[in-house]
Design a protein around this nucleic acid. Structure first.
Length: 287
DNA sequence: AAGAGGCCCTGATAGC
DNA sequence: TGCTATCAGGGCCTCT
């Protein structure tokens, strides 16, 4: 499901809701994610205060008070729900959570705080939690990831030297997290459209001027997607269950057969499978 | 070493 | 209605 902007939206609400709060209880309903949730996971987290909620690439990083970290990756279908606890029902004397729409089947983990709980739900199970015991191991975990588009390391020099001698197509490079972190299948197509670059072009043939466009448009697309609350094409929802809005701004993604949105371009958006991922582009203005 | 392809998994939808 | 095939926002592993 989520690329960098969607993960950032989730990070922001977690930051607002659980920072400086103490984990009261953790319930594991299903340990089977891409990495099996370890048996010590619940007791490890219980009693920890969430010092900070950060993000790198598509990973959410919970800073714990015992100086370790809890990583969360959402894979393709992971969602996070934050549910506030209501006051005790005076008749039945039970407290309950407001959770009308939540599909219960794939709730893997519940992290319970004083007044709210965080639920992780993941039908396809490509996501995972991971405890990282110290800063060194955290650095090691991210050592092979390339910079995010916003970082100064993602500059013209870096991009053009990375492409030297590489025959792989440019679209696959945007998806390659060792080259640049955070771009996924939707935004790769959008970035290439804005940069007027055909997705199947070999990387070593990309001109310097085009590298500059890739740099600028990668930042532009991700930032405006964050501003719009992310993209919801199937089931992405923020932690309150609301959809994002950036899908309304898609220029090419899922627009195959429709007119190119570029001013004065008569192209029709094409759909092509590249390395088993759908790719969308205009065959006239993307050269 | 670089790059292509398979695979992990469930659910929604399309086509017959 | 009910079957089967295909596809989905990610990333890791293996093979050549």
């Amino acid at each position: 499901m989520p690329e960098l902007p969607e993960v950032e939206i989730i990070r922001q609400s977690l930051d607002k809701k659980i920072k400086q709060k103490k984990v009261k209880k953790v319930i594991i309903r299903n340990r089977n994610l891409r990495l099996k949730i370890p048996l010590y996971f619940a007791t490890f987290l219980e009693g920890q205060k969430i010092i900070n909620v950060k993000r790198f690439s598509k990973y959410i990083i919970l800073y714990l008070s015992n100086k370790s970290y809890c990583l969360l990756h959402l894979g393709m279908s992971g969602t996070v729900h934050i549910i506030s606890k209501r006051k005790k029902n005076s008749i039945t004397n039970t407290s309950f959570y407001s959770s009308p729409i939540l599909p219960k089947l794939h709730n893997h983990v519940e992290i319970i705080f004083e007044n709210l709980k965080v639920i992780y739900n993941d039908p396809r199970r490509f996501g995972f939690f991971q405890i990282i015991k110290n800063l060194n191991l955290l650095k090691k975990k991210f050592a092979n990831l390339g910079p995010e588009p916003f970082q100064s390391e993602f500059n013209l020099e870096y991009i053009s030297s990375f492409f030297k001698g590489k025959k792989k197509n440019i679209k696959n490079f945007l998806l390659d997290q060792n080259f640049v972190s955070g771009i996924g299948n939707i935004y790769a197509s959008e970035i290439l459209f804005l940069s007027k670059i055909n997705p199947i072009r070999e990387a070593h043939l990309i001109q310097k001027e085009e590298c500059k466009k890739l740099m600028i448009n990668s930042r532009k697309v991700l930032i405006s997607a964050i501003k719009k609350g992310g993209s919801s094409i199937k089931d992405f929802k923020n932690t309150s269950g609301n959809k994002g809005n950036f899908q309304k701004n898609f220029k090419v993604y899922e627009r195959n057969g429709l007119n190119c949105k570029r001013f004065n371009c008569n192209g029709i958006i094409q759909k092509k499978t590249i390395s088993n991922r759908s790719t969308f582009f205009c065959n006239i203005c993307q050269i």
